[in-house]
């Protein structure tokens, strides 16, 4: 049901999930499906691969994807149109200011100044772009697995 419904629509909004394909990204598309017996909607999840040669979509980003006129491969049916919400980089839609959870970043810095800011604090201006800890300390960009075999080699993606 969900599959047919999603493939009918030309533009979809999905969240990027870890994927090992080099020229494509995987997207999780959540839609509401009507159960005619209960007359209620239930969430149904579907996964779609979209062409993304530059790999501009990072895990967790909310992205607009567009259907290709012709299916590229057996899996790739869509292409990435626009990254709408980069993950972990929230912008307030009303004021256009950056925020962290429920506070503006500016406000946090003003409060720090009132108390006497320290050098140990996190500085946004000096921070490198997202992804500099990939494969070092942050392994959320890959599909992890339960360790099933002791091969003697280091297995960083094993949980």
């Amino acid at each position: 049901m969900a599959l047919r419904a999603a493939s009918k629509v030309s533009i979809l909004l999905g969240q990027c999930v870890p994927c090992i394909k080099q020229n494509a990204s995987k997207f999780k598309i959540k839609r509401l499906e009507l159960d005619t017996n209960l007359n209620m909607y239930f969430p149904a999840v579907e996964y779609i691969y979209a062409f993304d040669p530059e790999k501009k979509c990072k895990t967790g980003d909310v992205v607009l994807i567009e259907q290709l006129p012709e299916q590229m491969t057996r899996l790739i049916t869509h292409k990435v149109k626009e990254v709408i919400y980069p993950f972990g980089d929230i912008t307030d839609p009303l004021t256009g200011k950056k925020c962290v959870a429920g506070k503006y970043r500016e406000d946090i810095e003003v409060i720090n100044k009132v108390y006497g800011e320290l050098d140990t604090r996190f500085k946004y201006d000096e921070a490198p772009p997202r992804g500099w800890q990939e494969d070092k300390k942050d392994f959320s960009h890959v599909e992890t697995y339960m360790k099933y075999h002791e091969s003697g080699e280091d297995q960083p993606y094993a949980y």
Partner: peptide, 18 residues
């Protein structure tokens, strides 16, 4: 909430996030 801060914290505290 804040990916950049998250990565900085992992580096500073020497933690691994899997």
């Amino acid at each position: 909430w804040d990916y950049k801060r998250f990565e900085w914290l992992l580096e500073t505290l020497n933690l691994k996030y899997v």
